[in-house]
Design a protein around this nucleic acid. Structure first.
Lengths: 238, 238
DNA sequence: ACACCCATGTAAGGTGTTACATGATTAG
DNA sequence: CTAATCATGTAACACCTTACATGGGTGT
């Protein structure tokens, strides 16, 4: 049941929550903004959309409806079918957002969950981050154990491969540590104990504070020394 | 044609080249020594083995054959069917080893290829490493481009996710640079122009020199001079 | 006019997993 | 004796991709 399609449904709902879109546009967003998971094909996306419509979570609208003038013009006015989240869909998405089962910290699930942390309550974020972290620590434990067992028999390349693999995992753990740290620092530990639905109307609530090492993001080909990290006050996504 | 099962065949052949084994053992090795790719199930492995037998690349032997006393006792004497590489199989594997098509640098393919670098000729190793590197550089280019395009609209979490993704890729590029560097330093550029079959009898030939940073392999959960968040205080969660 | 991107969809097929069926051997 | 692990195998199913079918719009 680690259905990748579950991830798709989740991501579609989440993307559509920000603004209505048609399938083609949706797919692009799925592969760029949320560039984490490798491309879903139309053969997967369209059937998925139909399912969601059948469940009453989305409705299909003809393109360029009056209320949508802006979005439609941005998304391309050739749009045929625009999908919009229903109230039920929104509710369902919010329920998904609050789930913290072990699924949530498997590789691709985690990435999808993280991508919508802006809409997620802090305590849920914490549980997901911590769950992910222990998941990775388990994995590290196994890798170390197996390395100790087999170290002698392996040639240098195999060893190097495993070393590199472990290093990547360790690095992600450290990343998670920083994130968890920031989450804790954002407000006091208590507070936000599943109280009010809070950030309901958009992604506009302030995101509490994230680690802000933007060094690597531009280290590659473009080091123009971005001074100001973009202000989160932007009323995002609209 | 990016069949994951192609990877399986390759890895099975490579593992069996070192010593005969039965399916169960093979699967364990596939998930530990070569821990890179996530577990293949028996439902995949056994049919694969049959295919390989049908192709004449393997032969099935009853467990604990006389010539195999040592290997069999190490592998477990309960063995029912021991698979052994045929001459044809060896030849085929060696041919696979020398292929350097674009397949070879896709994620899981690459890991499998790298795992058998000990048996691979240097010039092939070079091509694979360099191919992989350009593949990743392409990917980075795309990520950067899409990031520039969408930077403004994304909330902090999405941004952080992308930053982290890019950093991972950049890190792998650096890793490849080191490896390529070592390969070059191992001997002079010329030489080894597909001359003699050289290291044929085992993986015991010296591997020319690899970067030897084993620092991270054991760094684990205790970074020495961490200035930052020193105390994950590990209640372990899971 | 032609090529190319936008846009939606379906059918067939490959690929791999789960669940099941089976049985031998070892440890308690 | 029973449970757990070792060991092999198969069949049904879930999942996703590819290739195809279709057609509007836009640039050269």
């Amino acid at each position: 049941m680690s259905r990748r399609s579950g991830i798709l449904e989740f991501a579609v709902l989440g993307l559509l929550r920000e603004s209505p879109m048609h399938g083609y546009e949706l797919r692009k967003r799925l592969n760029t903004s949320l560039g984490i998971f490798r491309a879903f094909s139309y053969g997967t996306l369209y059937p998925c959309l139909k399912t969601l419509v059948a469940n009453g979570w989305l409705i299909e609208e003809p393109g360029s409806a009056p209320e949508d003038a802006l979005a439609a013009s941005l998304a391309g006015r050739r749009a045929k079918i625009v999908y919009r989240l229903t109230a039920d869909g929104k509710e369902h998405f919010e329920e998904l957002l609050s789930h913290t089962g072990p699924d949530a910290w498997e590789d691709e699930h985690f990435a999808a969950r993280f991508a919508f942390f802006g809409q997620t309550e802090r305590e849920v974020r914490m549980r997901v981050l911590e769950g992910r972290r222990s998941r990775l620590e388990e994995r590290l434990e196994k890798m170390r154990a197996s390395l100790v067992r087999t170290r002698e028999r392996l040639d240098d390349y195999t060893l190097e491969l495993q070393r590199h693999g472990m290093e990547s995992v360790e690095r992600e753990v450290r990343w998670l540590n920083e994130l968890i740290e920031s989450e804790r620092a954002g407000r006091d530990q208590r507070r936000s104990v599943h109280a009010e639905p809070a950030e309901q109307k958009g992604a506009s609530e302030e995101p509490d504070g994230l680690p802000r090492h933007q060094d690597a993001a531009s280290s590659g080909g473009t080091p123009p020394g971005r001074p100001g990290p973009p202000d989160p006050s932007a009323e995002g996504a609209g």
